[in-house]
């Protein structure tokens, strides 16, 4: 089964990467946040075992690492979807009606605030306080791509496009 092999090879690579990251930051507990960021880039979230491993190697208590990981909005302790859709709800976007866009996205994907990720792990929908692209309000970001002057219709069209694209694969 090449699929399994691929997965385990990936897991090994990821773990090696974690060790590499820890080495790069010289196991310095002050660098916890950049370490977590780099590790999250690798796994796309922060698995519990990896956090425990990081805590041990930095000489911090696991509770402290967990506390930091749960404090910052960027850290995810649950896996996120392949496409992370972030809708800006900063002031400018809000007054220019970002919430209807959010509602439309959630409705299209069957998601809610409590359930941000689709079961097929394709989409995660979240809000973000401000992306600083207020001139283009309301703004939606798909992974790192910024889309401005969003409307519910446009947003749903993007989703449909991605789904169609994924289905082709």
């Amino acid at each position: 089964m090449p699929q399994t092999l691929k997965k385990t090879t990936q897991r090994l690579r990821q773990f090696e990467k974690v060790c590499e990251i820890l080495d790069r930051y010289q196991h310095d507990p002050m660098k916890l946040i950049p370490i977590l960021q780099a590790v999250q880039d690798e796994y796309r979230y922060l698995p519990e075992e990896v956090l425990a491993y990081i805590a041990t190697s930095l000489g911090l208590s696991p509770a402290r690492v967990y506390g930091v990981a749960t404090f910052y909005a960027h850290f995810a302790l649950e896996p996120k979807g392949k496409y992370i859709i972030r809708l800006c709800d900063g002031t400018a976007c809000h007054v220019k009606k970002s919430i209807p866009v959010l509602d439309a996205l959630r409705e299209r994907l069957g998601l809610s605030e409590e359930k941000p990720t689709t079961p097929d792990m394709l989409f995660t929908v979240e809000t973000v306080s401000c992306l600083g692209a207020c001139g283009l309000a309301p703004v939606m970001v798909i992974n790192d791509e910024v889309h401005g002057q969003m409307t519910p219709e446009k947003a749903v069209a993007y989703i449909d496009e991605i789904i169609a694209c994924e289905e082709k694969k």
């Binding site: 956090l51 425990a52 805590a55 696991p62 509770a63 967990y66 506390g67 404090f71 910052y72």
Partner: peptide, 15 residues
């Protein structure tokens, strides 16, 4: 330690 933020804060053991 503390986990979470704001009104979601709680004092809990790791994880």
């Amino acid at each position: 330690d503390f986990a979470g933020r704001g009104s979601g804060s709680a004092v809990v053991p790791a994880f």
